[in-house]
Simulated assay, not measured.
Amino acid sequence: MKLLYYCLAFALPALSASTDDDSKKAKTAHKPCTIKSPTSGAFFDLTPISVVLPEEGRKAHKDDRTESWHARGYDYPANFTVNFCAPVVEDVKDVVGVDERLWRNVSAFYEMGGRTYSIGQQNSEPVFRGRKLILNYTDGSPCTSTSSHFTYSQRSTRPSLQSREIIGGDKGDKHRGHDDDDDEKKQKGRPGKNANVRRKSTIISLLCERDPLSPLATVAFVASSPDECTYFFEARTSAACGGIEAARQQLGPGGVFGVIFLIFVLVYIVGGCVYQRTVMHQRGWRQLPNYSMWAGIGGFIKDIFIILTSSCTRLLPSRRGYARLSPNGSGSGFGQTNAPPHRGRQGSQDSESENRLIDQLDEEWDD
């Protein structure tokens, strides 16, 4: 009974550990740039539209894209370059208001007046706003960098209330609307200016495109906020149509074969122990399945080892001065030529003993 308990104690923890590992991997594994809809349960994978340059030494495929996605600004005096879930592949330098170590993480930018403005850093986690799939980039260039450099045609042309003269006010309060340059000059002396500065951000709404003849993705600029801090884009792509998540295989072919073999061994041992104990009423080590076969194999290996070792000892060179002892106590040297008179009878007895030993081993092997 103890042997059966040992078999079960070995089998159950192994199976439970394998199932626990699989469940933990399924819960913790999350591929970047993917998301599952909380309402419909559809799986969305945006990696097909994420542009990544091939590694050095690997030949680029003819269908591989070598530049990021572009969007025209139309009435906005700049065009935009955007990538999905990854930095832009273009070499971005001298980004206004962004540290040099963060230039390689810019995921959206535009150029104006010979200067580069970031409108968001890399983000590989799309989100859902109701049924809308959204990708948001933040921590771009400061919002005050370009607000006073041009006039956006969509802004209202009516005079600002801040620029009107205040009735009964002081002459110094005639124009409350200070220029951005004056504000920046005043803020330079304030502590914590860099911590409180507002920075540009990007919101990309991804829409499903099922037309098979359409490009992989098309990006369109929608609008920007009046303070030019937030930029809105719309991207149409088949990657935003959703689908079913493909099951990822955690183990390779060798691992799968090893698991199958382990399960087979456990079933063989546990099932054999139960059968031998309940049906054949065996006890002790005889509860193991095919006990006689395994015991015979052990004896066969032992005999082979003895034969090999004895053959090796015979090949060793003998020393002069030593004699081989006979069973009756008398010895005869290796170099002696005259044998004792009873040598023939003793040889026949030895051969009979060897024959009996061989017959005994054959009977044990047959059992």
Rank of each mutant, 00 (worst) to 15 (best):
Y117F: 15
G177S: 08
R199E: 03
E90R: 09
D180L: 14
D181T: 07
R104L: 04
P159V: 08
V106A: 03
G130K: 05
S148E: 12
S163Q: 12
A78Y: 06
Q121P: 02
Y152I: 05
A86N: 10
K193L: 15
S163R: 15
A78D: 02
K186F: 15
Q187H: 08
D170V: 02
T138R: 06
T157M: 02
S201D: 01
G73S: 08
G73F: 00
S141H: 01
S160I: 01
N105D: 14
S118T: 01
D91A: 14
P77Y: 00
Y152D: 11
I134G: 02
Y74E: 08
P77W: 00
Q122C: 03
V92C: 09
G97K: 04
T146C: 10
D181R: 04
R176S: 05
S107Q: 05
I119L: 02
L102D: 13
Q122H: 07
S153W: 09
D173G: 09
S107P: 03
S163C: 04
V96L: 11
G140Y: 00
D75V: 08
T81A: 06
D181K: 11
P159F: 04
R101N: 11
Q154H: 12
I167G: 10
F150C: 06
V95F: 04
F128N: 01
I203G: 01
K132Y: 07
Y137L: 02
R72K: 13
G168M: 09
I203E: 00
D170F: 14
K132P: 07
K193R: 15
T151G: 02
L133E: 08
G113T: 02
C143I: 13
F128W: 06
N105V: 09
D139A: 14
K185M: 14
P191H: 10
N123D: 08
P77T: 01
K185F: 11
N83I: 07
D139G: 05
V98Q: 00
V197Y: 02
S141L: 05
G120N: 04
N194C: 06
E184T: 11
V89Y: 04
K185E: 10
Y74T: 10
S201V: 00
V82Y: 01
A108V: 12
V95Q: 03
H149V: 14
R131A: 15
E184Y: 07
H175N: 13
R115M: 13
Y117S: 04
I134K: 06
T81G: 10
D181W: 09
F150Y: 15
F150L: 13
Q187N: 15
V95H: 03
